[in-house]
Design a protein around this nucleic acid. Structure first.
Ligand code: SF4
Ligand code: SF4
Lengths: 138, 138
DNA sequence: CCCTAAAAAGACATATAAAGTCTTCTTAGG
DNA sequence: CCTAAGAAGACTTTATATGTCTTTTTAGGG
């Protein structure tokens, strides 16, 4: 359980690859897709999501492509994951306690909050800069 | 992401209910299902899984039913969850690094191990005894 | 102005997994 | 041998994951 989807995995690979590039260099989607071994059409969808929330900047037309929206040290893995997978929710009652009648007295409920905080805490400590370290090719 | 399935949620509810009963009392599946608001046929499947690994003991025929396999303070939430949901795997490379060519140099890989350990750590600290506290009726 | 290169958008298709049901079989007590 | 349970497995339905395809928009260059 608790498994990251392919989409999430691809998203991370893609943006980490971008983070390994020099800042302000525009990168073709096709180039990224090939480098990280992801179906280009699928990665396109993912980068569109990134673009909407500003995690990456996109440029259309000739000479277009993608670049990182912010400095890699200011983008956390948590942001990336939540951008494409949605919030970290170990159980639905965590985000919406009224979903479950039992939430008011349930002893399990707080455990899921603890799990959520734990996972978020780990992912929040990791930045794209660290993740890209060592994989910078030109 | 990271969401527990209904099956997992039901499993917890069911076994916690059982843990709230006096030890050595046999409990009907139908009674449990009604008490925790789960489709009886579905809960049956879940308890069969529990039974196979000894988390609960089952008795067939007239006067049959289920009872907890061990004392509730010796059963952790982690065991219950993993019994029905399988191991906690934030990403497939965690359980089988050879799945991914990149695992040898990937900087993301260790983060998922950290997440895994974190989640397991939380769930391992919680026992059925604590979860059942306060919900003992008869 | 037109042609081409690129991303954006949305409809579509397929595969897998989750969620639940149904039927038949086995076991045990009375 | 009849009835009350759980065991087992096939089956169905629904939702999600994993893509693909087509069309549109945007931008640069001749
Ligand atoms: S029973 Fe408890 S853990 Fe389960 S959904 Fe309700 S509040 Fe959450
Ligand atoms: S790229 Fe890294 S995180 Fe992703 S599957 Fe491979 S080893 Fe795991």
């Amino acid at each position: 359980m608790m498994e990251l989807t392919r989409k999430g995995e691809y998203a991370i690979r893609g943006i980490v690859h971008l983070a390994g590039k020099p800042l302000d260099s525009v990168c073709l989607l096709s180039e990224i897709a090939a480098a990280v071994d992801v179906p280009p059409t699928f990665l396109a969808k993912i980068f569109q999501q990134f673009s909407k929330i500003g995690l990456v900047k996109s440029f259309r037309g000739t000479g277009g492509g993608f670049m990182l929206g912010r400095a890699p040290e200011n983008i956390t893995l948590l942001e990336v994951v939540e951008a494409v997978e949605g919030p970290i929710i170990p159980n639905r009652c965590v985000i919406n306690p009224s979903d479950c009648d039992r939430s008011s007295y349930c002893n399990v409920h707080p455990v899921w909050k603890q799990v959520q905080d734990g996972v978020r805490g780990v992912l929040e400590q990791v930045t794209l800069k660290e993740l890209a370290a060592g994989s910078s090719k030109s």
